[in-house]
Design a binder for these strands. Sequence first.
RNA 1: GGGCCCGUGGCUCAGCCAGGCAGAGCGGCUGGCUCUUAACCAGCAUGUCGUGGGUUCAAAUCCCACCGGGCCCGCCA
Length: 536
Amino acid sequence: MSEQARIIGRGTWLDKVANEIIEREKRLGRDTSLIRVESGLGASGIPHIGSVGDAIRSYGVRLALESAGYKSELIAYSDDFDGLRKVPAGLPEWLKDYIAHPVCMIPDPFGCHSSYADHMSSLLKEALDRLGIEYIFKSGAEAYRSGTLNRQIVEILSHADKIGRKIKEMVGQEKYESTLPYTPLCKSCGRIYTTKAKSFDKEKRTVSYICEGTELGKDFLNGCGYSGEARIEEGLGKLMWKVEFAARWAALDIRFEAYGKELTDSVRINDWVCENILGFPPPYHVRYELFQDKSGRKLSKSSGNLVTPQEWLEYASPESLRLLMFKRIVGARNISIDDIPVYMDEFDELEDYYFSNSRDPNPMKDAKLRGLYEYSMLLKVPERKRLHVPYRLLAELASFAPEGKEVDFVAKRLSSYGIARELDEELKKRIEWASKWAKRGIKEQMPDIQINEQTRKAIIEFANFLPSCKYPEEIQSKAFEVLRANGLAPTDFFPVVYKILLGVNRGPRLGPYIYDMGVERARERLLRAAESQTNN
RNA sequence: GGGCCCGUGGCUCAGCCAGGCAGAGCGGCUGGCUCUUAACCAGCAUGUCGUGGGUUCAAAUCCCACCGGGCCCGCCA
């Protein structure tokens, strides 16, 4: 119990993992002058929040290793030589002609990058850059081309029978008892996966193959019938997934890699291959749950619940996303863009804690909270607390701010509430995030309003008076003047006005609001609404 | 067939990985401020922490079994 009470590093799971890696490396007696960690970058589809999550977490482990006094670096390895398995939802139909072609050899459907893979991994790299994640980029295709994996490929192919039997034993898959775990790029049709590797010539370092087709999903994909030989040195072929990680780990000297739970079996086999065929103790692993939407379903483009890092960073700070990933590794997380305010405020709370004088009575929790903050800031802690304004307040204010004037409008409000006196860059960014969030996906539609004759008269009268108003209070007074003159109660009048201007039946004090949005514009909106009712 | 996750106030969830008085936001309700309207202020929650066992001085948290919901693997990558 006393040894359990020891605080490791900064008290987070990142420190615990780093510590376990270090202990293990010492036990193995390996050189620890550089502890390299890896994260895979998928290149077969639009990157979602989980793809960057893997990299963010790996980078966190890197920081924790360095924090413990060990040099470390993160390799971001792009699977750009994988074949396209299906056309992702939302991408052009013509891509189906490229099924089973390596994604690095498919044209970019968006037309802005040199290939499909380049486009996808650029999105990922851009997100990582914005998140302050440092990494060394490696392209899988380039690794094959340059011979990085040659030694491992030869070892694996030389022991293919042994590996095939082991795979059968471990997961029951029989395929590799009769096929080499290597898929050459067909010299005739340019596809991988459709080729079946028949035999390996260790002397010539070639694989002979026939392009005979393969099952992909539910369909069978016909081969082109070509048969030929692939030389390992040319890099025109790749290892199958059940053994590819192992080759990478050994070739790049990887000591840690996290993985999502769907890869469990694959990692088990790769670990075995790494250890027993390549003689390299496999990296230390942590397994994490996949990110799901609020109803517990998998995030996917076709379900329309995809959360991309780009989207997140449009509405929220990089540190909020880093916090989400660092907070814990265990358990599943249901995430949704709707919850952005929660994550933003959570970060502010953590920052408040960090800079406050009160301490959690449990030293471990205290350490963890402080550590979590430091890691979320990538260990670059500011001098003092930044200004915190509840995200929902910003969003609320921005939601009825006149279009294009959100920042000024919200800043003015905050100032009048005494929350924030001046508008600095930090606050400006926050307002922009909250404002985009609040206004996301709203369709410009005239709300369905019932206006009775009395109210319509009052609204028209009020609207026509607006252009002559010079002060907010003038507008406010006029509103009451008009509604009384027409024998209306405030509840007959205001909700309708708000509904027309904002789409909801409540809102900010009317005078200043109309003043801010512009009297001409308000007049036009009110008249249009009042008149459209006449026609019904 | 194998593995995993989730189940906490009306709703959405945090807390669980390193046990220490059951929490937050939203919604709702009451009152204040306001020329009724956003914001703001004060107040309001008798919660089987899915169920049943176990460990412990102490369990939402750790262990076992079960129930309900969901996911992954068992093609391929």
